[in-house]
Design a binder for these strands. Structure first.
Lengths: 114, 114
DNA sequence: GCCGTAGTACGACGGATATCGTACTAGCGT
DNA sequence: ACGCTAGTACGATATCCGTCGTACTACGGC
């Protein structure tokens, strides 16, 4: 039997009003995390393992947590996977143009022409 | 006597092409440095001591160096003072809209209504 | 020449960060 | 029930970062 709990494993997300500019900038100041954000900007949602970071699983978990705790991404469990997506609306409301500028800069200067 | 050297004390600035997005984002991810950048965005030029960071002189020097080495500001010696200014054109060329978005976000959310 | 002011250099120190490996838990499929 | 896959937790470690104080250098004025 089971009481069908809707959210077994819950994840801490900062409220929109708690998101701080410095934290977001810090979260974005790492190549691996920029890569994740850029990836998520393309599709809507992705599992952690689908994004290749060339680091160990624990390190990957760490980077996703930094992004989540800074308020950059939102994560939910779906089956055995943990899906991540950008908090685009929240970020655009709080810091208009910031995400777009970072993404554009990243594409222009960090992706060496695919 | 003196051979009148044009630049006694020289300061290392990254070339425009060497400025990296991660470094800029990291440089901007500290409240004290954001404060400096915001201050410099107002006037054109300022000496280090004119911007009150509420930290010791050495710490202040450190923050200015981080900003300079990331390519965010340019510094020159003028007499006993060291003047700093934003590398606005370089940044706008490399990362269009980024500085503006950060400054706007800072004013909106980090300056508690002066 | 001497002093004051502006900033640097250096070393220390505590706290955060990036990284890893290993051992663990949660769901899914068979 | 069993095992596979996805991700977590935890501890270790090395490095970086923000901060400070003290001792130093550079320039300008008296």
């Amino acid at each position: 039997m089971s009481s069908a709990p809707p959210q077994l494993r819950t994840l801490d997300h900062p409220d929109s009003a708690e998101i701080r500019l410095e934290d977001v900038l810090h979260a974005l100041s790492d190549p691996a995390r920029l890569h994740v954000v850029h990836y998520l900007a393309g599709g809507g949602e992705a599992s952690c393992s689908e994004i290749d970071l060339a680091v160990s699983k624990s390190t990957s978990t760490h980077h996703f947590r930094v992004l989540r705790e800074a308020g950059v991404i939102r994560q939910v469990y779906r089956g055995t996977a943990k899906m991540s997506c950008l908090r685009r609306e929240d970020l655009d409301t709080l810091f208009p143009g910031l995400l777009e500028a970072v993404l554009r800069a990243y594409e222009t200067r960090c992706v060496p022409r695919a």
